[in-house]
Amino acid sequence: MKLSDQVIRNFRVAKLFKDQNTAKINSVDFSHNGETLISSSDDDSIVIYDCLEGKPKKTLYSKKYGVDLIRFTHAQNTCIYSSNKIDDTIRYLSLHDNKFIRYFPGHTRKVVSLSMSPIDDSFLSSSFDKTIRLWDLRSPNCQGMMQLQGRPVAAFDPEGLIFACGINSEMIKLYDLRSFDKGPFTTFRLQQDRDCDWTGLKFSSDGKMILISTNGPVIRLIDAFSGHALQSYMGHMNQKGILLEASFSPDAQFVLSGSQDGKVHIWNAENGTKTAVLESKHNGAPVHCVQFNPKYLMLATSSQSMSFWLPNIDD
């Protein structure tokens, strides 16, 4: 089944997992094959879900360090995550036996973005300490560091050859991974968002667009080659400055975001029109995370509970 406006409008919550978490789920990530979803929560838990059977598989805890920004590595039984207690070290965990494989120390303030390379063992982190660091899973030492002005967010492109850094909520710099120490090969200046900060960047699957999440009532889309503003998506609620994830559908046809009032908003990526506003079962709690499964026709959203969505074929 291909994604269309009708299919999108027919998505319904198929499974609701209420009892896995006692605090908000702060990040989720699908495995590359779409068979597994991992979540991290402010209650220090890591929950692994089986997407094919639609059930939680395993729960691990990071009580001492806390857990945020969880990401699968290329091996489905390992992940990286940032800490939200004690220090700002990034941790590399074996999900099989719940043992740390490696620590990545260096950041001196909260890590605000974490992006795994789509092609190899390198990953990017950015922090309130105004640095972006490049790492390799095989070494605890930072492979490269950029000192920037202002809060940065960073993400790899789908081919893993370049990465984008959003700085000060007003400019995007693109770097070639092989020569990033020479500085950016291009810089886009955007009109600064006065009322909100950028909280995340994502490339579309074809690498042609960059989606900018904010902690305000707007999501921006720009052309990844020219930097031109393509769309601004609005209509979802975010008056409290909370982190609401925005995502592309796998074919980059749609943009999705949660909302402060528990709804899920979906726009046509190209023309910016609202395709659907879906009622979640998160009881009016803010929907912090929204992601499409990369391989299967399913959607995951989270607040303190986790929802798996499927299209209702009968509608």
Rank of each mutant, 00 (worst) to 15 (best):
N293S: 13
D129W: 05
R109A: 14
I212R: 00
I119A: 12
K182M: 10
S259F: 01
F254G: 07
N283F: 09
K2N: 13
G54P: 00
I242E: 10
R133L: 09
S305W: 11
C142E: 13
G166L: 06
I222L: 09
I25N: 03
D87F: 05
F225M: 09
S257I: 05
R151N: 08
W135T: 11
F17Y: 15
F11Q: 12
T214I: 02
D44V: 10
S41G: 06
I46C: 10
K182E: 14
D314W: 08
M1C: 11
R138A: 09
G144Y: 02
S82Y: 07
G166T: 01
I25L: 01
L137A: 00
I119T: 15
T199H: 01
R220D: 03
S41N: 07
S83P: 08
G262K: 04
S39H: 01
D68N: 14
F248N: 00
I212Y: 00
C79V: 15
V264K: 07
P184A: 10
S305C: 12
N98V: 03
K63T: 10
F163M: 05
A246G: 12
P250G: 08
Q149K: 13
M306K: 11
P118I: 05
T73W: 01
R178P: 13
S307E: 15
S45I: 06
G150H: 00
F128M: 14
T89H: 04
R9N: 13
V7L: 12
K15N: 14
L3A: 02
H288L: 15
P105I: 02
D29G: 08
I313N: 09
L221T: 10
L174R: 02
N312G: 00
P105G: 05
G241S: 06
T36Y: 06
F225P: 08
E245Y: 10
G34S: 05
L297Y: 08
K85R: 15
S249H: 00
I8L: 06
S302P: 01
A252W: 01
N21G: 01
G200R: 05
Q76I: 15
K18M: 14
S303K: 11
S126G: 13
L134S: 12
C289P: 09
A229F: 03
E279Q: 12
H32L: 12
D88I: 00
Y65T: 14
K99Q: 15
N26V: 09
S62Y: 00
G241L: 03
Q239N: 11
G262L: 04
V67A: 08
G54A: 08
I90F: 02
W198A: 12
H265E: 03
I80G: 04
P118M: 04
A285C: 07
Y296K: 15
F104S: 09
V218W: 02
T108E: 14
P140A: 00
D136P: 06
G144D: 05
I8G: 05
Q260N: 11
Q260P: 00
D50C: 12
D44W: 04
E245A: 10
S259L: 06
S205L: 03
Y49A: 03
F156V: 14
M116H: 03
N268M: 02
G34L: 10
G160K: 07
V111N: 03
S41C: 12
K58C: 11
R138W: 07
K274Q: 11
Y81G: 06
V112H: 04
G183S: 12
D181K: 13
S125T: 15
K295T: 13
V67T: 14
T186C: 14
S204N: 09
W198M: 11
G160R: 04
D88E: 09
K24T: 15
